[in-house]
Structure formats: C-alpha cells, structure tokens
Design a protein around this nucleic acid. Structure first.
Lengths: 332, 332
DNA sequence: AGCGTTACTGTGCACGTTCACAGAAGCTTC
DNA sequence: GAAGCTTCTGTGAACGTGCACAGTAACGCT
C-alpha cells in the first residue's frame, strides 16, 4: 500500500539509489543497461519522485508563485489573466514546475505572501497587476527568489523585469486613426493613474495631440464598465462637442457606449469610440468596438521566459516590449 | 545568511525542538512561559516552517490541485473560473493550504495530472469543467486524495461530490417567464451536451414546454459567441416565426443578438432573448440581457467546504444544489 | 608496465521536521 | 509518604531524496 520510493526502484532494477537518482536528474553517467532496467522498474512500480524529500535537500521547491495584487472586488474583470495563467501553467509544466496562486489584495494577504516567498516556498515569483507603490514589491525586495511581472511595475521598472505591450504605441495608433479620420475634438477616458495602462495610454494619447489634449477632454475611470459610463457622461457635460473618444479599455468603452446612447449620440457618426484590449466584450457591444489588440499570448510567454532565464541563473534580463495592433470595427 | 530552522528558534528560546514543534502545531501542552519565549524567538529570527521537511514526515503536502479540463482554446471564456479561483485561494489560505493550478486539456496533460496527484503531491483535488466521459475521473479514481467538483461531473454524480447551481430551475424560470409573457414559439440554444449546463438547462426548458419543445426549435452551441450566432441563424432558417429564444449562456446570447440584428429582428419586440450566467457581457450587449444569475460565490464556497470536510476525514458528503435567480433587463 | 582519463556505480550523510516515547515536576488522593 | 494523575519537556528515529566522495573497471597513451 505504501508508495514506492527510490529504494524500491533501485532494488527492482538491481542497482543502487545513486544510479536511479542520476537517471532521474539527467546525469550522463548511466549505462544503457542500467537505464533500461531502471526505466522498467519505474513503470512497474509506478514510482513518482517525492518532491518534498527532493526539496529538502536541493533547497528548491519546484514551484512558482503567481501573485495577484488586484483588490478583491475587481479581480479577474480583466480577461488578460486567463491567458497568462494558461500560458504559465503550460510553460512551467514543461520544466516540471508547478504554479501556485496567491492573492495580495490586503495587508493580511501581503504578509502571507511575503512569509511564503521569503520562507523559501517558491523558486520564483510572477507578479500581476501590481500597482504603483505596492508595499509588496519592497517587502519581496532582493535576497529572495527572482521575480518578474507581466506588465511593468510602476516605479520599479529597473528592479522587476517585465514583458508588456507597448501601451504608448497602442494609444498613438488609436489617436492617430481618429486624427486621420478628421476628428477634431478627441477626448479620452483613462484607467487608474497608478497602473501602467492608466499612465502610458494617456501619455501616448497626449504625444499625438500635444496641447490639444486638455484636461477638459480627459476623464478617469477604474477599468469597470460603470466607471466608463460615468466618465463618458461627465465628458459630455464638460465638452458636448466631442466627436471622438479613446477609452483605455473595452469594458469601460462598453460603458461609454451606453452613456452615448443615453445621450442620443450616434456611434460612430456623431462620436467615434475606440477601446483597448480587444477582449470578448469588444465583439458583443453594438456597434462592435474598434480597439487595440495586445499580443497577450506573447506577453505571457515572454514573461515566463524571463522568469525561467532568471531561474537558470541569469544575472540580468532586459524588459520586453511588444507591439500592439489597431483592429478596425464599426465604432470608429 | 541561512534560513533559520526550528533548531535555531529552540536555541533562541531556550527550549527544545519538540516544544517549538508542539506550539507550531497547536498542541495544548506548552507552558505559558515557553510560549512567549518561543513566540519572541520566532519573530526575532524570522523563522518560517519548512514545508518540505514537514511534508516528508506528515505525508501531506499542504496543497490542493485545481484541475481545469477545458480544452485549451476556450479556456477561461467562462467568467465563473475567476470567482472560483478567488474564493478557493481565500478559503484554502485560511487553513494554510495553497492552490496549485493544473491543466488537463489533452492526453499528455492528463497523464501529468494523474502522476502528480497519485504521486501524493496534493492533499485534495478540485475539478472544474470536467466533461462527461473524461478519462481523468477514472484515472484519479479511488485510493487517491479526495476530489470534489464545482459543477456536477456527468456520469459520476455519486462518486465526485459537487456544489452547483440548480441548472434545471434556472432554465424553468426563464422558460416560464417567456410563457407568462405570451410567447408562443420558444426556441433554445443549448451548450455542449456533455456538460451539466448543456444537458440540464435543456431539461428544464423541456420540462416547461413539454411536447412543444421540438427538435426543430433546439440548436446546439459550444459556449462561444460565434457558435451562438451560428445557432441563431440556423434557428431562424428552420423556424422563422420564433418569438423567443432561451440561450444557455450570455456569451452565446450576445452572438444570437448579432444574428437577430443581422436578420432585421427587433429585440425584444419581435424576438425575446434570455441568457444564462449574468456575466459581464450581459450588461454590455444592446439591449442588456435578461438572464439567469447563478450564485457563483456560494457555489465556490460550498465546493471548497465539501473538500475541506473530506480533508478533515469525512467519509461522505452530500452534493449541494443552489437556487438560481431570474434577472430581468431589456432583452425579454 | 605505468599512468591518466573516461565511464560508471555504491555509500554515508545531510536536509528540517513530526511523532512516539520516556521522564520530570507538581498536585491530589488515599 | 506512596501512588496516581496532569502538565510539561527533551530525545532519538524516521520520512525520501541529492550530492560529494570513494572506488572500480576498461581503455588509450607514453
């Protein structure tokens, strides 16, 4: 009834523990004869290596912690996570690493995460949606296992390697498209200004419009649909002559569409609307959203690649910035 | 530089390993004096228990595996996962259990999962979106750690405990609402017929309509928006006089709305549309969807509760079925 | 023949914890 | 004052693995 150990395998194969261990860990010094004998013994006994025992001696755990810093309520409104989780599981599994999920929404959570990570329970850390000034970053600090982030960590760009979409480029693409269409009064609804998406999408917008990007034409949201609706209503009050609006996320854009409809504006005839993300909502709105596609899968892949490089002992890795793409549908 | 061990704590507190271990594991026989000394020593040294060493002797890992059986492409289109993951992390963390994510999309994945679980690397298994006939269920079988599922596992309802929404009730609620409104030709777009949501929502629909639920009025989708659009187009061809359609998911309903719009039908005037899930798309469509809300958070909570009960040694737990709720918006 | 190199194998120890056990000290009870 | 609780403490063994090391055999080279 007991689970077979490396001893049992060794006995069944007629070799010693050491030889079995060498085979398991890819050491080259194993004779062909021993190799086949051990492989047979393994499949006969149904042996699976005991990770706890291995961890104890190697001082590595074979797992990576994914830390979600989003405040609890809005966690996962963002569809990006799903891609990241999927890709992460896949790529880590290839290296026999497992992905353990952690929440860092409040102080208690953060303390738990720090204890966990500094206690040596993870070989690496994968930060997600970490806001500017998040104390977690300092707390993890140096001395612990390597950490990377999917999306830049504001204020720590040089400390925490990351892969991200070129947010500024995406914002420029949309804004330039509006300009090329002859739109004159172009407004923007941003994300929270303590996130890279909030800050950099606004920067790209401002780069194109220059002094035309007045604060009167800029409203802030918090990524939720409701906040998009609110911000749009506000903008229409402030500047009724708006003829285009760049919204920093599709979900907020869906809210903006509702506000425009309520105000009797036709989209795109009266007001052009541009979103960001190319998420599934972009297709379910009416009209479907013209938006900016981020290369989510590649972002995830590159993020994991950075982490793996660090786990392999790389001293330093450079951030990866990936291009975005304008997807034209009917809202603009 | 080395991480402090239980020895270091014991030395700093002037007691023995055993006493520290007893305190850590909640044994009652620890004197007040020893208690404070140890607690001080722990915080001074920054000691964190080494889970690997603990696992080695206790034969438990302190982790639960969440196994996602969705085929890769459509993974996470379903927003239910996010709630489940969040709740699972939370509740497990309270018991110092961590959540490790695994994919079981293809044969290779499944083998990995089975090795992992049967190899004793998880104390429990949390199945998600497991389809009928999934070989994984057999492979995990008995003898391994306890397993539960969020949502019934078709064909294994008596083997794998689960918490789920009352799918039939939800379907009845929507169908009865259509009937009460005087709709005469009521169609349905189902989910895949190897999932509980696919099967049972159709059953509830049929329970209300009886023989009026002819196969001419029933089309099948695969949960995706595109499949909803396809199915709706198909239904309109088969039965152009449809005046209501119950779609088994909001995302597919968004597709159905597009098909209806393309066919020039007004919603809800010509055709009433009902969705299922009350996900975020239900609000971003035009018109907003009348739909069925599932108590996602409670489903997740109850699922974890079942698992914890089994981990605590319960021999048997009963499935939990939670009521759904009709949410009336503008599409019906 | 002697020596170095390559290919392979077995053994003892350490990793950090829990658990069973033995035992000490203080109290109550006969 | 002996015996029996209760409360608390320390100690040795065991969990299953990887790694350093020692050792063997075969081979090529001088």
């Amino acid at each position: 009834m007991k689970r077979p150990t490396i001893h049992d395998v060794a006995a069944a194969a007629g070799v010693s523990r050491g030889t079995v261990s060498r085979l398991l860990n890819g050491d080259k010094y194993v004779s062909p004869a021993a190799r086949v004998a051990i492989e047979r013994a393994i499949s006969e006994t149904g042996y699976v290596v005991n990770r706890a025992a291995r961890s104890l001696v190697t001082q590595r755990t074979g797992s990576v912690a994914m830390v979600l810093s989003e405040p609890h309520e809005k966690l996962f409104e963002d569809p990006n996570y799903s891609t990241l989780i999927r890709v992460a599981i896949r790529m880590l599994a290839e290296r026999d690493l497992s992905l353990v999920m952690m929440l860092a929404g409040d102080e208690g959570d953060r303390e738990r995460v720090v204890r966990y990570v500094r206690g040596g329970h993870a070989d690496g850390v994968l930060l997600v949606s970490t806001h500017a000034g998040d104390p977690l970053v300092e707390a993890l600090g140096s001395g612990g296992p390597p950490a990377v982030s999917c999306g830049a960590v504001i204020g720590h760009e040089n400390v925490i390697p990351y892969a991200a979409a070129d947010e500024r480029l995406g914002a420029r693409q949309m804004t330039e498209y509006f300009v090329a269409q002859g739109r004159k009064r172009i407004a923007m609804i941003t994300g929270p200004m303590d996130t890279p998406g909030g800050i950099q999408r606004l920067e790209g917008f401002a780069e194109v419009l220059g002094r035309k990007a007045t604060s009167k034409l800029i409203a802030h949201g918090d990524w939720t649909q409701a906040s998009g609706e609110r911000a749009m209503t506000e903008l229409l009050e402030r500047a009724p002559d708006i003829d285009a609006v760049f919204v920093a996320s599709d979900l907020m854009a869906a809210g903006a569409l509702a506000a425009l409809r309520a105000a009797g504006r036709r989209v795109p005839d009266d007001v052009a609307v541009g979103g960001f993300d190319d998420s599934s909502v972009a297709l379910s709105t009416h009209p479907p959203l013209t938006t900016i596609r981020q290369p989510l899968a590649e972002m995830a892949q590159e993020t994991i690649r950075l982490l793996l490089a660090l786990l392999d002992g790389a001293k330093h890795v450079d951030p990866v910035i990936l291009p975005t793409e304008l997807v034209i549908r009917e809202s603009a």
